[in-house]
Nucleic acid binder design. Structure first.
Lengths: 344, 344
DNA sequence: CTGTTAGCGCGTTCAC
DNA sequence: GTGAACGCGCTAACAG
């Protein structure tokens, strides 16, 4: 007598379970279970009946219960610091896209400070995630905790400074800096200033070290100013470099784009300089704003898509086979010839 | 004979359960459970023994199992589109911070296109999240699905265009635009151009409508160009406005900061104009780059922290009491008097 | 305050 | 191909 139940699903008093579906379809609960699991042997006809009943009831398999039984939550923890850092949103978008495409959900932990890591890890263990991707600084004990808990982990643009090898995917800093430095040298720049990232950041350090090394190979000694990866510190760094050198700077190499943009702003605003006529500025990352008309930054763009793809791939491989040895994958960025540097 | 087990925890062959802890502490399993639950009645001394055993075993309560039993996963789904849109990272950081502080985890769904919503929602139901915060466009049926599944939802900077009322937290568009328009009018601007957001975006539309209305109240008829919230479309919009008006534009009001920045870039680059001497440009949001020296954008800053706080608060209230009626909370932004507009 | 007991919803043997 | 039965690890009554 009532209308089509598919169009007017009866408001269930509680969320339907596989038993409800089984009853409605006239099969056993385990048959329902097999319907929703890949590779479950089930007759096409039964399957159709079950799916119909499921649809009518608005049934969705309970991933929580399923995770309990199967010991596989299909959850991947993503730990990421400095979400507001302009470069990570793209990374995060890439990671979630890749993970979702491969049937995993993202449990996000956005860290604001280092001391939040332990609390986040506690939750990571509690939720029995299948694995983790970490774009944040991890101490040696924290890294060991992953082993103890048998949770595969892949570091993103970080690597273990300690002895324990850990899987990671990084953008090649030395390679990228070499491209930049060589082109700047070829254009005749000789007096270099470097603006570094936070001291405890391995990526930032490796970039600055790589640039410095390359310059020293060319017989030059750059001046270095500290920074913290943000716009302001780039501007400040530029001012300090100028002060320290009486304005005798040809080119400024920054540990990331955001600081490079800050440096350009300072050059124009505080010193009335023209970029790149008076001074060349280069960065690293290839973030969106770097391409804006006001900057047209010369930089190295990280292959974010390939990197996130690699990270997710490596992680899921290790979820499937926990005994796979750690692996470090280094991808090379591409030089973006903007207009913020005179290049040779 | 062996060393301190706290320092050298025996590598457990499998992750320890509450039973293992119970055995080691010489208590029942339920005592262990109570130890880890707020308000569980347990003698301080027993509690200490249990916690010690737990530490020695490296035990962490299984949130999956707990969720199954308690029918509360402590998971909150966050659906967000355009993660790369420069404004959302801050929102996402705020939401996760608030949620974690209140003992909820974030299940993240970063949507790239509209048609990913349904797939995401399927997973939302499967994971039996306690609630959801949505910064993405939802259709009426999708909204109804939340009711059907009894999942409380709070919209972020969106609202239901349909009839069903839904809880939401928004930044006051009319109020913000009025501030901008009034100040621009007071400064003597008369020839206005507007650059809109995507047509299907309610926030963008409300901003442009509010600006237009206010201008019409003043007897003015602005010219409108379409846009899509990104830098390029802001630049294009500016060019179209100039073409359509033979350069006779005093002020450009953009539906967001990113487009305002694009407009400024176009004004300088393509028309050699000085901002704000030749033309005033204003935006909306208060994103980081808006404050950079090259732009110093005049804009309305959304009170992101208060907004995320409100969203999380409203959601968790409704998780605790699903019968609370929907509520719309509108917060007013603050005018940032930058240097991209001549103001009265 | 403590232990015993009974499920939560599903996956997985096993017989049939 | 199908169904009965059990248990994943935990919480919530309840009795002691």
């Amino acid at each position: 007598m009532s209308g089509d139940p598919a169009r007017h699903p009866p408001p269930p008093s509680r969320t339907p379970t596989s038993y409800d579906v089984a009853q409605r379809a006239g099969v056993s609960q385990s048959a329902v279970s097999r319907c929703f699991r890949p590779g479950g042997s089930i007759a096409p006809e039964t399957r159709a009946r079950v799916l119909k009943a499921a649809r009518e009831l608005g049934y969705q398999p309970n991933a929580i219960a399923s995770g309990l039984k199967a010991k596989r939550s299909n959850l991947v923890a993503v730990l990421i610091s400095n979400l507001t850092n302009l470069y990570y949103p793209e990374v995060l978008a890439g990671l979630t896209r890749q993970l979702n495409a491969r049937d995993n959900r993202v449990l996000l932990f956005a860290l604001e400070t280092e001391d939040e890591v332990d609390a986040a890890l506690d939750q990571v263990w509690r939720y029995r995630v299948d694995g983790a991707i970490v774009a944040a600084r991890l101490s040696a004990p924290q890294l060991r905790a992953f082993q103890r808990h048998r949770v595969p982990v892949v570091l993103y643009n970080r690597w273990s400074d300690g002895s324990d090898p850990v899987s990671s995917v990084c953008c090649d800093s030395p390679g990228g800096e070499r491209m930049l430095v060589d082109r700047l040298l070829a254009a005749g720049h000789r007096r270099f200033g470097l603006i570094a990232g936070p001291e405890d950041n391995t990526v930032g350090r490796s970039r600055i070290e790589a640039a410095r090394t390359r310059l020293e190979q060319a017989g030059l000694t750059p001046v270095v100013a500290g920074g913290s990866f943000d716009h302001d510190s780039g501007a400040q760094g530029f001012r300090r470099l100028m002060m320290a050198n009486d304005g005798a700077i040809d080119a400024v190499i920054c540990a990331n784009d955001l600081m490079a943009i800050g440096a350009i702003d300072a050059a124009r605003e505080d010193f009335g300089l023209d970029v790149p006529r008076d001074v060349s500025v280069v960065g690293f990352d290839g973030v969106g704003p770097a391409a804006w008309a006001s900057y047209r930054l010369t930089t190295v763009r990280q292959p974010v898509n390939r990197m996130t793809e690699a990270a997710v791939g490596m992680l899921l491989e290790r979820v499937a086979d926990p005994d796979l040895p750690p692996e470090v994958r280094t991808l090379t960025g591409t030089l973006i010839t903007g207009a913020s540097a005179r290049l040779g």
